[in-house]
């Protein structure tokens, strides 16, 4: 786990997810406090937490990709020579692009549907649903971008280090 000793620069999605998670945490804690101290439970908590929750997954996914934290079965790929590793990376990128293109398409359709039919969440003062579901296509698009980035840098790096290995 990276330590935050030096000033690290964070990507926009990292800021957004960190803020969303902080808000969710405060909201849940505030609900407990207000139930016991003010005897006034917050009514919208469950609905708002439920609506914000998918953001952690869909906007968090590109961060996981960027930081290469997705667990994978590495037994066979580790047996490959180092200079071929980049092709494994490429395969992952292709698979990810296919998956997230699906999600981009259907997430967009879903969001447009909510917008078109003016679907609302009653417990959130009838807030429109599309503002929450839009995290799906946005996250999918970001993931596609990040996974291509990872692959491109793998090809650059590994090509160089592969060449070095050959020299030795």
């Amino acid at each position: 786990m990276p330590k935050g000793k030096t000033k690290t620069k964070y990507s926009p999605e990292e800021y957004i997810v960190a803020i969303v998670m902080t808000l969710m945490l405060i909201l849940c804690f505030a609900n407990v406090l207000s139930r016991y101290i003010l005897h006034l439970p917050l009514l919208f908590t469950d609905a708002l937490l439920g609506a914000l929750f998918p953001m952690v997954t869909f906007l968090g996914a590109p961060i996981v990709c960027m930081r290469k934290r997705n667990p994978a079965f590495t037994l066979f790929s580790d047996m490959l020579p180092r200079k071929h590793q980049k092709y494994v990376e490429l395969l992952t990128t292709i698979a990810s692009v296919i998956l997230f293109s699906f999600l981009l398409y259907y997430g967009t359709m879903k969001t447009l549907d909510y917008y078109q039919y003016n679907t609302t969440i009653n417990a959130l003062n009838n807030a429109p649903r599309w503002i929450f579901s839009v995290c799906i296509p946005v996250g999918a698009l970001l993931y596609i971008w990040r996974t291509i980035q990872v692959s491109v840098s793998a090809f650059k790096e590994r090509t160089i280090s592969g060449a070095e290995e050959d020299e030795r």
Partner: peptide
């Protein structure tokens, strides 16, 4: 087996 992340 192709080392594509489990989630994907």
């Amino acid at each position: 087996i192709l080392r594509i992340p489990i989630a994907i």
